[in-house]
Simulated scan of single mutants.
Amino acid sequence: MQQFLTTTLSGLTLGFVYAAFALALVMIWRSTRIVNFAQAPMAMLTTYVALTVIDAGYSYWIGFGSALVVGFVLGVAVEWLVVRRVDHSVELNPVILTLGLFIVFHSVAALVFGSQFRSFPAPFGVRGFEVGDTTIALTGFGIFTILAVLATLVLLLLLFRFTDVGLRMRASAFNAEVSRLLGVKVGRMLSLGWALAAVVGSLSGLLIAGGGLVHPSYMDPVVVYGFVAAVLGGLDSPLGAVAGGLMLGLCLSFVSGYLGSELVAMAALLVLVAVLLVRPGGLFASTAQRRV
Results as ranks from 00 to 15, higher is better:
residue 228 V to L: 11
residue 210 G to P: 07
residue 287 T to S: 09
residue 102 F to V: 00
residue 264 V to S: 11
residue 227 F to C: 05
residue 59 S to Y: 04
residue 109 A to D: 05
residue 243 A to H: 03
residue 63 G to S: 01
residue 6 T to Y: 09
residue 155 L to G: 04
residue 170 R to D: 05
residue 132 G to Y: 12
residue 283 L to W: 08
residue 136 I to N: 07
residue 35 V to R: 00
residue 156 L to A: 13
residue 238 P to V: 03
residue 91 E to K: 09
residue 104 V to R: 05
residue 140 G to T: 12
residue 212 G to E: 07
residue 200 V to S: 00
residue 101 L to H: 10
residue 110 A to R: 10
residue 75 G to K: 14
residue 282 G to K: 11
residue 189 M to P: 00
residue 169 M to H: 01
residue 237 S to G: 04
residue 205 G to V: 08
residue 65 G to Q: 02
residue 271 V to W: 04
residue 159 L to W: 03
residue 142 G to F: 07
residue 121 P to Y: 01
residue 198 A to V: 04
residue 280 P to R: 15
residue 52 T to S: 15
residue 38 A to P: 02
residue 30 R to V: 13
residue 55 D to A: 14
residue 21 F to H: 08
residue 227 F to P: 10
residue 149 V to C: 15
residue 119 S to L: 05
residue 195 A to T: 00
residue 290 R to V: 15
residue 38 A to E: 06
residue 200 V to I: 12
residue 22 A to H: 06
residue 203 L to K: 02
residue 132 G to L: 10
residue 71 G to Y: 09
residue 201 G to E: 02
residue 254 F to I: 09
residue 280 P to M: 13
residue 238 P to S: 10
residue 16 F to H: 04
residue 281 G to C: 15
residue 44 M to F: 11
residue 219 M to P: 01
residue 114 G to A: 14
residue 106 H to R: 08
residue 3 Q to G: 02
residue 85 R to D: 02
residue 77 A to W: 05
residue 19 A to Q: 11
residue 71 G to R: 00
residue 241 A to F: 11
residue 92 L to Q: 05
residue 80 W to R: 15
residue 84 R to S: 06
residue 241 A to P: 06
residue 277 L to M: 08
residue 63 G to E: 03
residue 270 L to F: 13
residue 137 A to Y: 04
residue 254 F to A: 06
residue 96 I to G: 02
residue 280 P to K: 14
residue 217 S to K: 11
residue 247 M to L: 15
residue 182 L to E: 13
residue 85 R to K: 01
residue 143 I to F: 13
residue 258 Y to M: 06
residue 276 L to V: 10
residue 133 D to S: 11
residue 225 Y to A: 13
residue 239 L to G: 13
residue 171 A to W: 01
residue 145 T to A: 07
residue 87 D to Y: 12
residue 84 R to K: 09
residue 12 L to P: 06
residue 74 L to D: 03
residue 270 L to T: 07
residue 187 G to S: 03
residue 7 T to G: 09
residue 64 F to L: 09
residue 230 A to D: 06
residue 10 S to D: 08
residue 282 G to E: 05
residue 203 L to H: 00
residue 197 A to N: 00
residue 161 R to A: 13
residue 215 H to D: 14
residue 196 L to Y: 03
residue 31 S to Q: 02
residue 69 V to I: 15
residue 254 F to C: 11
residue 137 A to I: 08
residue 145 T to V: 14
residue 199 V to T: 01
residue 31 S to D: 07
residue 178 V to K: 04
residue 63 G to W: 00
residue 228 V to K: 05
residue 68 L to C: 03
residue 185 K to T: 12
residue 34 I to M: 12
residue 43 A to M: 02
residue 202 S to R: 12
residue 9 L to N: 13
residue 70 V to P: 11
